[in-house]
């Protein structure tokens, strides 16, 4: 025991270690505050919060879980990108390749899919929780609006990802979904007061063609892996920042 402890001690008090981790686990008030203050990842939190905000049966951790799902989606998604090519000729083959020939490929794909579902569930429940606890009321109005934007972005992320496997399920679900864009009033070519033909309406801008094809798959892919996640990150940053600035997690007056 003792030599072990000595090795640990010598590491703990080395200049290298202390240059990385400034503060240890000493259970003093000052140190517990410094732990949070001096850590870029932890300082998303204030150093002290009301006991009320710590209660699991108040928040159910739903916002945090949603954020964790986003992290899981990012990690598994980036790994899946190593094998996936967003081209109709290859996309489906790459899915099969991931399922049968890439070690752990199927697990990564499964986690990516199920975490996406879970994320949609938790974001809806989070919204329900925030509503039922009146947490959208002043001064938190704007943060609720940001949250609604995040809900929309999450749904779009899931929707654009749905096409990528390029199987029958994906193709026809997206067919039904994008055909609704035909009927956007004024801007879709089959909606009420249609002004544009099928080569110039909003649906064309989404699909890059009149049917779901190579351009559409590529557009959905770019939206799915770059544009929407970037938007989500920006909105999340505002969302988290505003929680702090608007007085932390809501509590009874």
């Amino acid at each position: 025991m003792k030599p072990n402890k000595n090795i640990w001690q010598s590491i703990r008090y080395s200049r290298l270690y202390k240059s990385i981790f400034r503060h240890g686990y000493d259970d003093t008030a000052q140190n517990r505050i410094l732990q949070v203050r001096s850590n870029i990842f932890l300082h998303i939190h204030p150093p002290k919060i009301p006991q009320h905000a710590m209660k699991i049966r108040f928040t159910w951790c739903l916002g945090g879980i949603t954020f964790f799902m986003f992290l899981v989606e990012t990690i598994t998604g980036i790994l899946l990108m190593f094998y996936y090519r967003p081209v109709p000729e290859y996309a489906y083959m790459d899915m099969k390749y991931l399922e049968f020939d890439v070690p752990f490929g199927i697990i990564l794909r499964n986690i990516h899919r199920w975490a996406a579902h879970l994320m949609v569930v938790t974001i809806m429940l989070h919204m329900l929780r925030v509503f039922l606890t009146g947490s959208y009321k002043p001064p938190r109005e704007f943060n609720w609006v940001v949250g609604v934007c995040l809900l929309v972005i999450t749904l779009l992320l899931s929707f654009t990802g749905y096409l990528l496997p390029w199987d029958q399920l994906a193709y026809w679900a997206i067919t039904v979904g994008t055909n609704m864009i035909r009927s956007v009033p004024f801007m879709g070519h089959e909606g009420p007061f249609a002004l544009l033909n099928k080569y110039h309406d909003v649906r064309f801008a989404v699909l890059g063609g009149t049917e779901i094809g190579a351009n559409g798959l590529l557009r959905f892919y770019v939206l799915h892996i770059v544009l929407l996640p970037a938007a989500a990150i920006i909105f999340m940053a505002v969302h988290f920042w505003r929680i702090r600035k608007d007085g932390g997690i809501s509590r009874p007056l």
């Binding site: 517990r32 505050i33 932890l42 204030p46 002290k48 919060i49 006991q51 009320h52």
Partner: peptide
């Protein structure tokens, strides 16, 4: 609020 708790740990 009177009751405050440390975030860490």
């Amino acid at each position: 609020h009177p009751e405050k708790k440390y975030v860490f740990p």
